[in-house]
Design a protein around this nucleic acid. Structure first.
Length: 361
DNA sequence: GAATCGTGGCA
DNA sequence: TTGCCAAGATT
């Protein structure tokens, strides 16, 4: 067991990528990078990390920032409850721990948005504590090296791999060991087409010896995708448009969206305009139909969204008692400070392009 | 324990 | 085009 860690650490020392959060022991920067990288590739999270560090050099700066600014900086990164928990955790560090991160696994684990993985990562990388990280890379590396076919998405699998990861850990240098395991999984022992020919521990790999590299790790569950059909109304009054902020939970937490509704299946333009929910949202509004955009498809892990955007221009101010009363008017400059789902940003882009070259439509 | 939560890259 | 999955956490 010690041999595996030593070989991987030696490989890591010679092959690691240079990343801005490496080489520091600042728990704030390590925690920030780990939260950004949850279910997120380095290539996607890198620019966000740099923007956050520049905007908020310390955890106190982050704690003092407005939720609006934090959410806007997170725009486009996905899993938006991470941004809320990031802000909450920063405030807890300041208010409950005097501005210093807890120097224990349990203390870190109690912060919002910090689960088993992130607690182990910060504990080991910032404080040198002997906690093994278990992320997607570690599941894959261990299942292949040791030939373990227990499904990694089962409770038994999670317990088994956590135990094995902890047993493999070099407790004299947990930071190096953890980073070596993850970097090895991310760049050599990859899900598809792993580079077994360059593997420093190929001699010890059970999966390679038995020809099971492509079968490991095992996942028991399959993702079920559902189709959803959404209609959004882009209602303008002068330069401004109507939108509201979504709640703390569910999809696109705390992001802004236009008024709209969901339907059971695809609608033609005329069906859409004649639909009951469209009538309810536009009743009593003197408006002019500006455009009905083509369906925009938006892919999420669990659903495929088909969105239609209907652009309406009000001919007069909306009456005070109206279903749209919970929405507010946003000017273009105001909306620059707010966060929108990628789907809405794609609509903005499409609309801008349509105006610059109307002959295309 | 199962279901959810985004977005983007790759084959 | 489709499916997979990525430095996971929460409910």
């Amino acid at each position: 067991m010690e041999h595996l860690s030593a070989a991987l650490c030696q490989w890591y020392a010679a092959n690691q990528r240079k990343l801005p959060w490496r080489g520091t022991h600042d728990p704030y920067k390590i925690w920030l990078s780990e939260v950004i990288l949850q279910q997120t590739r380095v290539a996607q999270g890198l620019a966000y990390y740099q923007r956050f560090v520049e905007a908020f050099p310390t955890v106190a700066d982050l704690a003092q920032a407005s939720g609006e600014r934090v959410t806007r900086l997170w725009q486009g990164l996905g899993y938006y409850s991470r941004a809320r928990n990031l802000h909450l955790a920063a405030q807890q560090v300041v208010e409950r721990h005097g501005g210093r991160f807890p120097e224990s696994y349990a203390g870190l684990r109690a912060l919002p948005g910090v689960g088993d993985y992130t607690a182990a990562a910060v504990a080991s990388l910032a404080f040198g504590l002997p906690h093994a990280v278990v992320d997607g890379n570690v599941y894959r590396v261990i299942s292949r090296l040791l030939g373990i076919s227990t499904p990694i998405d089962s409770g038994a699998g999670k317990r088994e791999f956590a135990s094995l990861a902890q047993a493999l850990l070099d407790k004299a240098r947990p930071a190096l060991h953890n980073q070596a395991m993850m970097e090895f999984g991310a760049t050599l022992c990859t899900p598809k087409s792993p580079q077994c020919g360059r593997c420093p521990v190929a001699d010890a790999c059970v999966a390679l010896r038995s020809g099971r590299v492509d079968e490991l790790p095992v996942k028991a569950k399959k993702i079920v995708q559902k189709d959803r059909f959404l209609v959004y109304l882009f209602i303008t009054w002068g330069d401004s448009f109507l939108a509201r902020q979504r709640g703390d939970d569910g999809i696109w937490a705390r992001l802004h969206e236009f008024p709209g509704f969901e339907v059971e299946g695809p609608l033609t333009d005329s069906e859409l305009l004649a639909s009951e929910p469209f009538a309810a949202l536009t009743q009593g509004l003197a408006h002019e139909l500006e455009a009905i955009g083509p369906p925009l498809t938006h892919l999420l892990t669990h659903q495929r969204i088909w969105a239609r955007f209907v652009e309406l221009r009000l001919q007069g101010p909306p009456p005070p008692e109206h279903p749209l009363g919970e929405y507010t008017w946003l000017s273009p400059s105001r909306s620059e400070d707010l966060a929108f789902p990628k789907l809405m940003l794609r609509f903005f882009d499409q609309r801008r392009q349509g105006r610059q070259s109307p002959s295309l439509f």
